[in-house]
Nucleic acid binder design. Structure first.
Lengths: 360, 360
DNA sequence: CTGTTAGCGCATTCAA
DNA sequence: TTGAATGCGCTAACAG
C-alpha cells in the first residue's frame, strides 16, 4: 500500500495541488466541473489526507492530552469518557496518560505531549508544584484543571463543590445522632481532599462538636494501591509519600482507637471499598457497629453489603464540561469562569443512629 | 512563547541544523566540543523538538490507536491501562476511542486514526465485517485484535480461553447438582460471547443434560445500557439491534419461564450487575432461589450480596501483552502467534446446590 | 476561477 | 568531523 498523496490526486485530476487542497477544505471557490474531477480522483485513488502534514503547516494537531492519576479509577474513567465524547464531536482526539499521582511521571508526560504539539490539555494534577505546567500555561497552551487545583497554574478549574459535599455528608451523620465522627482523608497535596476535610470540620464546628485530630486519618487515596481483589494491576507505592498507609490499614488503626468513632466519612470511592474490607476483617458490621458514608457513587454501591450511602458527583458531566471549555479556549472564544458543580446526598443503608452503649 | 526551532539552536551554537539533529538523535559522530555547544544552546533556549515535524519526515508518529466498545466498562479500562503502561515504556502514546459497539463509529474512528498516521492499532472490533479494517490490515498497518475476532482481518488475537472458561463455569454448576441451567449471553456478532455459549453447551452435553433454547437468553452486553444507578452516562441503544433487551429485562423474562432455571451463567460483568438488580426486584434471593456465576471478576464482586462466584480473566495482562505484541509488529520483529490466556474459577458465595422442590 | 511557490520543522543524502 | 541542500505532504499567500 504505497501512500497516495495530494500530488497524485492533482495529477490524476489534471489540476494543481492547491485546487485539490481547496476542494477538500472548502477554502475557496472551485468550479463544479473541476471539483467533480478532483472528487473522482480522490475516490479512485482512495486518497486520505495526511493529518500530520496538515498539522505541520496549520500548526494544529486536533489532539488534546488528558492526564489523570489512574484511568482504572471509575471516577476518572467516567471523566475520560465525558471528555472523549465531547472532544470527538469536534473532530479532536484524546491521548490519555496515567500519572499515578507521581510528579515525575506527570512532568515526563507533559514534556512529551508538548513535543507532540497538542492543541490543549485537560489535567488532574498531582498537586505538587510543576514548573513545566506553569510554563505551559504561561505559554498560552489551553489548559483545563480537572477536579483539583495546583499551585501557580492559572487555568479554569472544573470541579464539584467538595467542601459542601463533605459538609452535607458530615451533617447527615450528625443529624443521625453521631458525635464521634471520623474521616478517612487522602494526602494533603490533593486540593480536593483538603476541601473535603474543610467541609467535615465546618459541619462539626457548627454542631458544636469538638474536632479531634485522632479521628482525622490520612491514607493513600489512589485506586491501584495494594493487592486488589479482582484485577491484576501492579502495586505502586505512593510516589511522594512512601509511608502513606492504604485505606485498609488506616481504617484498622482508627478502629483500634481507644474511643473509636461510631461513624466515618470516607473521602473517595476506592477508600470506601477498602474500608468495607477492613470492617469485614475486623468482624464489625456496617452500619450496626460503624456507619459509613462515602464520597463518589459507584454502580456496585447499590449492591454492596450494605448498600452504600454516598455523596454523588456528576462525573460524566464534569468531563464533558471540561472538554467543552477546552474547545472554547482552543477556538479562542470567550469563556465564563466555571462554577462548581453541586453534589447530591444519596441515602441508602450504610448509616444509622449510633448505639446507646457507644463503646462497643 | 514563540516557538524555538532547530534552526534557532543551530544559530546559537554556530553549527548547522544537521549537526543539531545528529546530537539530538545520536545518529552520527559529533566532536565532544561542538556537542557541548549544541547541548548548551538547547538548554539555554529550552528547545523541544517538534514531534510532528519529525514524524512527517520519519514517517512515524509514535502513536497507536486503541479502539474499545466503552472505556467505562471496567474490563476495557483495565485493558486500556495495560496497553498504555506498556506502550508508554516504548515512548509511544495512546489515542483511545469508544465505539459503543457501533460499526459506523468504528469505521469513522478508523478513518481518522489512519489519517493521523498512527503506527499501530489495538482494536476490540464490533464484530461486524469492516471493509476499512480489512484494508488497513492488508495495507500492513500493524494491528492486534483484542478480546474478539472479526471477519477477514488477518491479525493476531489476544484473548482469554472463553470456551474453556464458560465450560468451567457451567461444569461447576452441574457439579453442584443443577440440571436447569440458564445462560445470559450477548449479541451473536461478538465472537467472545459465542465461544462462551459454546463452552456452556459442551459442558451440558458432556453431562448428558439436554440443551434447551428457552434457557439461552440474549441481551445487550454493553456497559452503558439503560439508566445506571451511579453514573450519569448517556443511554445508548444497541446500534445494530435496536430491540435487544438489556440484561435486566432479559433475566426477568427468564425467571418468568414456566420452568425457570435453578442456576444461571452470566457472560459478562455488566450483565451480572443487572442480573443482580433484576433478582432483587423480583424479590428472589441469590443463591437460595437462583445460583449465579459471572464471567469476569470485579473489585466490588467480593462485597456484593452475595459475594460473587466468577470466572476471572487476567485483564491487565491482556492489555500489556497486546501492546507488547504490537510493538514487535511495529518494529518488524518476529512474533509468535499468541495463545489464549487461561481463566480461573473464583468460588465465593453466589452458587449453591439447587433446592429439592425445584419449582419455586 | 486556478496555478506557482514558499515554507511548516525536521532528518538525511551527498559533498567536503 | 561537519554543512548545504533536498523533501516529507500539505496549506496559504501571491499571481494571473
Amino acid at each position: 500500500m504505497t501512500k497516495v498523496t495530494i500530488k497524485d490526486v492533482a495529477e490524476r485530476a489534471g489540476v494543481s495541488t492547491a485546487t485539490v487542497s481547496h476542494v477538500i477544505n472548502h477554502t475557496r471557490f472551485v468550479s463544479e466541473e473541476t471539483r467533480q474531477r478532483v472528487l473522482a480522483a480522490i475516490e479512485a485513488l482512495n486518497y486520505q489526507p495526511n493529518a500530520i502534514a496538515r498539522g505541520l503547516v496549520t500548526n494544529s494537531t486536533q489532539t488534546i492530552g488528558l492526564l489523570v492519576p489512574d484511568i482504572t479509577n471509575p471516577f476518572f474513567t467516567a471523566v475520560a469518557r465525558g471528555v472523549e465524547d465531547k472532544i470527538n464531536q469536534h473532530g479532536y482526539h484524546t491521548i490519555f496518560c496515567n500519572t499515578d499521582e507521581d510528579p515525575a511521571r506527570e512532568d515526563e508526560y507533559l514534556r512529551l505531549l508538548a513535543a507532540r504539539q497538542i492543541d490543549g490539555l485537560i489535567v488532574v494534577p498531582t498537586g505538587m508544584r510543576s514548573e513545566r505546567l506553569i510554563r505551559l500555561a504561561e505559554g498560552n497552551l489551553p489548559i483545563i484543571l480537572l477536579d483539583r487545583e495546583t499551585p501557580e497554574v492559572a487555568a479554569p478549574l472544573i470541579s464539584v463543590d467538595n467542601e459542601s459535599g463533605a459538609y452535607q455528608a458530615t451533617q447527615y451523620l450528625i443529624e443521625l445522632g453521631h458525635q464521634r465522627i471520623g474521616i478517612l482523608a487522602g494526602v494533603e497535596t490533593i486540593s480536593t481532599m483538603e476541601l473535603r476535610v474543610d467541609g467535615y470540620k465546618r459541619a462539626l464546628k457548627e454542631a458544636g462538636i469538638p474536632i479531634e485530630e485522632s479521628l482525622i486519618v490520612r491514607a493513600d487515596s489512589r485506586f491501584n494501591v495494594g493487592p486488589l481483589a479482582a484485577v491484576d494491576l501492579p502495586f505502586i507505592r505512593h510516589p511522594h509519600n512512601q509511608n502513606m498507609p492504604n485505606a485498609f490499614q488506616a481504617l484498622k488503626n482508627l478502629l483500634d482507637n481507644e474511643f473509636p468513632p461510631s461513624a466515618i466519612f470516607v473521602t473517595n470511592n476506592q477508600m470506601t471499598l477498602w474500608a468495607l474490607h477492613a470492617l469485614r476483617e475486623s468482624h464489625l458490621r456496617c452500619p450496626e457497629d460503624l456507619s459509613i458514608i462515602g464520597f463518589d457513587d459507584h454502580d456496585w454501591a447499590l449492591l454492596s453489603t450494605p448498600p452504600l450511602t454516598v455523596i454523588r458527583q456528576p462525573i460524566y458531566q464534569l468531563g464533558q464540561t471540561a472538554a467543552d471549555l477546552l474547545m472554547k479556549l482552543i477556538q479562542q472564544q470567550a469563556v465564563q469562569p466555571p462554577s462548581l458543580f453541586p453534589v447530591e446526598l444519596i441515602v441508602r443503608e450504610s448509616c444509622q443512629p449510633p448505639r446507646k452503649n457507644s463503646s462497643r
